[in-house]
Write a protein that binds this DNA or RNA. Structure first.
Lengths: 208, 208
DNA sequence: CCTCAATTTTGACACTGTCAAGATGCGCTG
DNA sequence: CAGCGCATCTTGACAGTGTCAAAATTGAGG
C-alpha cells in the first residue's frame, strides 16, 4: 500500500522512524514491553499518530517482521555458496553459524518473524508468507540440487531433511534467545556438532 | 509453600480451580488472551481474589508451567526405556513421537514451560529450574550410559549431542505449535526422519 | 491565496494488572 | 458454645494499554 511514500508531511518520515524505533525498543526491553503510546512518545508524536501508518499494533509488528525477513534473505544469500560449489561439513558449518549469528544478533527481528503472533491463525500477511516460503523452498531445492549432482546420498527426502534440519536451527536459536540455553560459549561447539550431524546424514554410504 | 492446602475456605479450592481454568483458557485462546479478570470471572470470583493465591499474573503462569513440568516428567519417565534396554532407531523414534505428542497435545503447557517469559532475565523459579535441569541432565546421563554400555559410538560428546538433539525436538515442536509448519500429516515422517538421523549420528562406525 | 486531502492531535471508552481498605466466614481456643 | 483471629474474598481506585471518532493542523496544487 504505502510502498512508495507519496511524500512525508509534518514529520520527516514517520513510518520509517516508527519501524526503526520499534525495533530498537523491542531489542532493549522485549516485544511484550513495547507499547504504542511509549513508541509514539519516543519519536515525539501523539499516541494515535502511528495509526495512520499502521492499522493496529499487529500491523506495525508485522511490518517490523517484514524488514527482518528482508535482512534474513540477504543473510541467506550471502551464506549460501554458489550453484556449482560442492557441499561438505565445512560449508554446512558456515551456514549454521550464519543462521545462528543472525538469530542472536537480530533477535528482536527473529522473535517477530518466527513468533506465534504472526503465524498462528493464518494472520500472517501474504507477502511475508511468500518470501518465507520461497526461502524454505530454495533450501529444499538446494538439497535436491546436491542430490542430482551426486554430492549427497540419493535416498533421503529433501523435504523431510529440510524440515528437520531447519527445526534444529530454529530450536537452537529459540533456546538461546529465550534464555533456556544460557552458556553462550556452547554455541560454537553446538554448531560444530550440528554440522557434523547434518553432514553424516547426507554423506553416509552404508546400508542398514 | 502452599504445597498441602491447609483447607479451603469460602470457595472450594480456588487455587486448584484457577490453575485448571487458566490452562483451559490458554488452550482455547492462547496465552496472550488470558486476563486475570476474565479468569476470575470464569471461576465466579471477584477480580482480585486470585491475588491471594498468586502474587501476580506471572506467578500464576509459573504455577501452570510447573504443572506442565510435572506432566512432562511423567511423560519422559514413561517414554524412557529401562536402564538395560538397548538403543536403536525404533526406540529413538518412540521417544521422539512421545515428545512431540506431549508438545502438541499439551501445547498450552509447553508454551509456558519453554516460553521466553519464564527463562529470560532469570525470572524462572528455582524449583522449575531444578526439575528441568534434572530432566536435561538425565538425558545426558542416558547417552553417557549408552556409551559406557558400548551401544553407541564413544567419540561423541553426550552434552553436545543432547543439546543439539533437544534443539531439534524443541524446534519441531515450536514450528508446529506456532503454526509455521501447518501440515500435521508431515509430523510422522518428520519424526521418522529425525529418528533415523539421531540414530545415524550415534551408531555410525566409519571414520572420516 | 485558498481549497483539499493527508496527517496529526485531543478526547473518550473499554479493558488490563494490581494495590489498599473493608467485609466475610471458617477454625481454633477458652 | 462463644468469640477471637486470620485466611479469604470483595469493592474501590489508579495508572497504563489499544484504538475509535472528531477536531485541528499542515503542506501541495489549482
Amino acid at each position: 500500500m504505502t510502498a512508495q511514500a507519496p511524500k512525508p508531511y509534518h514529520h520527516g518520515d514517520l513510518r520509517r522512524v516508527l519501524l526503526d524505533q520499534a525495533a530498537q525498543m523491542i531489542r532493549q526491553d522485549g516485544e511484550a514491553a513495547l507499547s504504542m503510546r511509549k513508541l509514539a512518545a519516543a519519536v515525539g508524536v501523539s499516541r494515535t499518530a502511528p495509526y495512520h501508518h499502521f492499522a493496529d499494533k499487529q500491523a506495525l509488528l508485522f511490518a517490523v517482521a517484514e524488514e527482518g525477513f528482508l535482512r534474513f534473505s540477504e543473510m541467506m544469500a550471502a551464506a549460501t555458496p554458489g550453484e556449482n560449489t560442492g557441499v561438505n561439513e565445512e560449508s554446512l558449518h558456515r551456514f549454521i553459524v550464519s543462521y545462528l549469528r543472525f538469530a542472536l544478533d537480530y533477535s528482536e527481528y527473529y522473535d517477530l518473524m518466527f513468533g506465534s503472533h504472526l503465524w498462528r491463525d493464518q494472520t500472517v500477511s501474504t507477502r511475508i508468507k511468500e518470501v518465507s516460503h520461497a526461502s524454505f523452498r530454495h533450501y529444499v531445492e538446494q538439497i535436491r540440487h546436491w542430490q542430482s549432482a551426486g554430492w549427497v546420498r540419493p535416498d533421503i527426502d529433501p523435504l523431510r531433511y529440510a524440515q528437520v534440519s531447519w527445526s534444529t536451527l530454529h530450536g537452537m536459536s529459540r533456546l538461546l534467545i529465550d534464555g533456556i540455553y544460557v552458556d553462550l560459549a556452547a554455541v560454537e561447539p553446538m554448531c560444530r556438532h550440528a554440522a557434523r550431524q547434518f553432514w553424516r546424514e547426507l554423506q553416509v554410504e552404508q546400508q542398514d
